[in-house]
Nucleic acid binder design. Structure first.
Lengths: 211, 211
DNA sequence: GTTTTATCGATAATCCCATATCGTTAAAAA
DNA sequence: TTTTTAACGATATGGGATTATCGATAAAAC
């Protein structure tokens, strides 16, 4: 159970374990082995053990892991118990979809509002979240002490959105625009690259498929 | 310029190069060096050269790469010139957003329709794409010879959506549901895991930030 | 109580990706 | 024409992640 120093691949797998464990039927035995998890998720069993050891070294010989404990450890570790506030810049389709997506609550993320420089977009979404004009950004961020920003503006505006966030004390940025962003040291960028995933998918196709 | 056998990390970076090159101003010199690209994208220059060598070994000493040629090579390689048809299963918010997202055309992907088992969702979206009842799935897929499927149903229905796709000849699946899918050999899965990205972002925060 | 067995944890080996180094080349300068 | 130089390509090195192996342990069986 060592915090920090967890590799990115491991970190990315942790939510998968959690989802799987939570999806098990109520009448499942209260314990589970790494081999079962591995086979269900298409991973190696050694890898599963190593990953789980990072968050919860409670595995026991002949028994495996207690599911309930594992779930707790994972949720605790991933910060799903406490929520963190975040804001969105860019209230286009994607921005609005993220703003209204209720699933983030399960992941400890609370998106409080979105901002857009287009005044016509001001108002409330169907779930009651606010969309503000971009001028309000500084005030809201300062007041709520926002540390996480989500960028859903077009590529050409992404860097300025990013700079605005950094200027207002945001230290972690989730970027959905397909451009590389320059940030000072200490600010973290997580790039969500849909084109990259698509490239992987296309190139893995058995042969070129043209409709 | 060796097809196949390209590493995943490299493949994921290729669209980034392309985006960057296409974003250069019109009056930019017609050539560019790996060092310039590297610095703009926050990568190593050796890495840039190695990546580009996979799609286009046209770099010349003292000159670098001809931007126009590079763009052509990348688009060709990534299949952005020819379009492939795809369908969506799951016409909730995410499904509809993807269905109406025009950007995919630039990536050589044409989403022809979405399907949902909820009959109330039938109709046309604002961009004129069709949403069908799931019963129509087989007919449409067969008729259009669809090979790529996108899954945007809730986790608990993802496997059945997947099975339906496989049964109807789909060989590449882009999965937005947070579960592992079992598919026979020969079918490719690309998992889009938003929770995983979020986990990375949260854990990289300088310290735990609770609002 | 002893033996067997399922399962974990730790160490070791392998593999893959990123980085560094070095030689090569072709344009520009002298 | 020769030299210099900016840039590439190829080979070598290093580090991180996955996979394999082995010993340890605790429950179950005898």
């Amino acid at each position: 159970m060592q915090d920090q120093n967890i590799s990115s691949p491991t970190l990315r797998r942790l939510p998968t374990y959690l989802n799987y464990l939570k999806s098990l039927p109520k009448d499942h035995p209260e314990n589970i082995s790494s081999a079962v998890i591995a086979s269900a998720l298409g991973l190696g069993e050694v890898q599963v053990r190593k990953d789980l050891a990072c968050v919860c070294n409670k595995g026991k010989p002949k028994i495996g892991y207690i599911i309930k404990d594992l779930i707790n450890c994972l949720e605790e570790f991933l910060g799903y118990n406490s929520t963190t506030n975040a804001v969105i810049v860019g209230a286009g389709k994607l921005g609005k979809a993220l703003l209204d997506y209720v699933g983030f609550e399960n992941y400890g993320l609370n998106i409080v509002a979105a901002f857009d420089k287009n005044p016509a977009l001001q108002g409330k979404t169907e779930t009651g979240k606010n969309i503000y004009i971009l001028d309000k950004f500084e005030e809201v961020c300062k007041r709520l002490n926002i540390k996480i920003g989500i960028i859903t503006v077009p590529a050409e505006n992404a860097q300025e959105a990013c700079d605005l966030m950094v200027k207002n004390g945001i230290v972690a940025i989730w970027n959905f625009a397909p451009v590389h962003l320059k940030v000072p040291d200490g600010v973290i960028i997580q790039h969500e690259n849909i084109a990259a995933s698509l490239a992987l998918l296309s190139k893995r196709l058995p042969e070129r498929i043209n409709a």
